[in-house]
Amino acid sequence: MVALGPLAVSFAVFVAGFAVVLASWWLGGRPRSPAQTAPERVPFGGGADPRVHAWNRYHVRYYSMALIFLAFDMEMVFMYPWAVVFVREGLIAMVEMGMFITILLLGVLYAWRERALEWA
């Protein structure tokens, strides 16, 4: 099997998966819709009936944490290739990295002002 190459192995996995689906179909009968009537589809609220739809727009409070993550993540993404060429490029690379870090620092300062660094 392995000698036939990765494609044959994938095909075998696909066929086996399909066989399992067919077998469970045959064993359990046709899959039924999990909810059949309107009261069955209602989310559980302890017996209370929801008055409004659950879609709603709310304040994503972790946005400031996401901001800090992005700032440091981007820094790293740029710094690795930068470190490789730093010796060859010299001062220009230094200045470019300085500009880049300054821009990211603004994001961190903003997150600081939004109290993202105050734990609990």
Binding site: G45, G46, G47, A48, P50, R51, V52, N56, R57, Y58
Partner: peptide, 10 residues
Amino acid sequence: LDVLPVAVGP
């Protein structure tokens, strides 16, 4: 933003 009225219980 949206204010979602939700009753829980009884």
